[in-house]
Amino acid sequence: MTPHIVSTKIYVLVLAALLALTALTVAASFYDLGGGRLHYANAVTALTIAVSKATLVVLYFMHVRYSSHLTWVFVGAGVFWLLVLIGLTLSDVLTRGWLPSPGPWSS
């Protein structure tokens, strides 16, 4: 397997995109985008930008775009299990107030 050598141009473009997205996310944080008590719109914006940046790093800097299916599966598994951990934990935390019961959140 000869390694795929990524051109300098692509690396520079990715760098530029990452810097631009950083500027964007900082700028967005100065505006209240709404979304209730937890400011969901702000959170969603910031996390979307973060996911985009991470994806760029994984695909280009870490060469996953040019790697075998197996690497894709490994990366996908890591992300999936992280989401399981966060998601199922939140399934408890976010629904705890639905029934009136004494808990640390309701005090």
């Binding site: 996310t25 967005a28 944080s29 400011h39 959170a43 910031a46 996390l47 973060a50 940046k53 991470a54």
Partner: peptide
Amino acid sequence: WIFLFPVLYLVARHS
């Protein structure tokens, strides 16, 4: 860090 930065410094600034 790409996640830590928004999560710690940005997301919670409002409210």
